[in-house]
Design a protein around this nucleic acid. Structure first.
Lengths: 221, 221
DNA sequence: GCATCTTTTGAGAGTTACTGTCATAAGACA
DNA sequence: TGTCTTATGACAGTAACTCTCAAAAGATGC
């Protein structure tokens, strides 16, 4: 692993979609700079995925990706702090948190989570239909990517716990974190299960089943 | 990260404790070779932790650790495939799985899990009382270590799911994996919560609380 | 349209965590 | 004691990053 990423002046730009860029949030359409950054980010990732498909993940170096995307290696790292981040971006998780926040506060928790997850999943699939399949393949085949996903999930847990705390029905911070951890752990396993079998069953259906299992709890078994 | 660890002829030796070494399992006391390996492993880790305490994790290089332990860098990597593995060993998880297997099959699942976790926790703490505290600190402070733990937990999920499948009360493989993921996710958050606050509350008490939350399920909230 | 100010980019040098190979040393076993 | 197996060290190589600095390019006021 890298030497634990101390403070760096490399600031990766905002998300791929433009949905979360400050300018977009402010309503005005983004300037040239913003649009160029989004394009660069897209290009880097697209070229990377193309190379991964051709040569495999490990056999593809960052230098090759940068060359293919016609940027310098420095620039690559400004956009993606690690190579694994090409595959595991944190675009998905904030989306889910937003969707969760949009649910009515008095809705049963599990139902809110179900809607939030499915809604954000729908958006991601709609946005990048091709890449989802390749992500799945990389997740299944490359240990480093799995590791990075696990790390990402674990770091999302804190944010989710906070969101849960703001809702009713949770006693304290610790309980919120346990619930968040259990939920995310279940989701992670669901995605992994789906990816391992090459996605035979519909992911949506799997998620529904997983949530049912969670709803019943571990008691009475 | 490393280039995803392809097949290597470096085989890290067995666990620290000797509990799981083949010779120990066979009843005969281990030969000189085996004892030396255990000692080397212990020395490397001890020197590493000492240096971490003195200079910090990131500031300590593998070469320094190897020098302090009086082995070559090559040998270091034969014992610990990555630097993070010094902190996050998979010694704990197999212990828990063993303990789980030892529980009566007709015991309620949650109770088996509780006993298994607490039993293995007790063993680890008894074995290496000092190192537990430092592990906790590193877990809290070093992102790379947290990442490695998340990866480790996620890889344990498969084994736990299998163990659950062999017990009654689980419908299919998928359900077992979801349960395993939820349980481990909850445990991971528990440990992180505990480490973040510097371990104010007793870890055992926290685990009990977490299991109670799991027992109640996410339904009815 | 020009001047200035800010942000992005590229170049390049350096660090470090690894991988792979081979000869040597040391325990196991007859 | 001799042979066979396994652990070790030396060494060379790779690739993922980090850091710094100067140049290029969009943004902004006039």
């Amino acid at each position: 692993m890298n030497p634990a990423r101390p403070a760096s002046d490399h600031r990766p730009p905002e998300s791929d979609t433009g949905r979360h860029t400050p300018a977009a949030a402010a309503g005005a359409r983004p300037g040239l700079r913003e649009r160029k950054k989004i394009k660069t980010r897209r290009t880097i990732r697209a070229e990377a995925f193309r190379l991964f498909a051709e040569q495999g993940y490990d056999a593809t170096t960052v230098d090759q990706i940068a060359a293919a995307a016609e940027v310098s290696p420095s620039t690559f790292f400004r956009y993606f702090p690690t190579k694994e981040d090409l595959v595991v971006t944190d675009e998905y998780d904030p989306l889910t948190l937003d969707a969760l926040a949009a649910r009515p506060a008095d809705e049963p928790l599990l139902q809110s989570l179900r809607h939030a997850v499915l809604e954000s999943l729908r958006q991601v699939v709609a946005d990048e239909p091709d890449e989802v399949r390749q992500r799945m393949r990389l997740l299944r085949d490359v240990p480093a990517v799995r590791g990075r996903m696990a790390e990402s999930v674990s770091s999302t847990a804190g944010a989710l716990a906070e969101a849960l705390s703001r809702r009713g029905g949770v006693h304290d911070v610790f309980e919120a974190r346990v619930l968040a951890g259990a939920f995310l752990g279940a989701m992670q396993e669901t995605v992994l299960y789906w990816s391992e079998d090459g996605g035979p069953e519909d992911l949506v259906a799997l998620i529904e089943r997983a949530l049912d299992v969670l709803g019943n709890g571990l008691g009475r078994r």
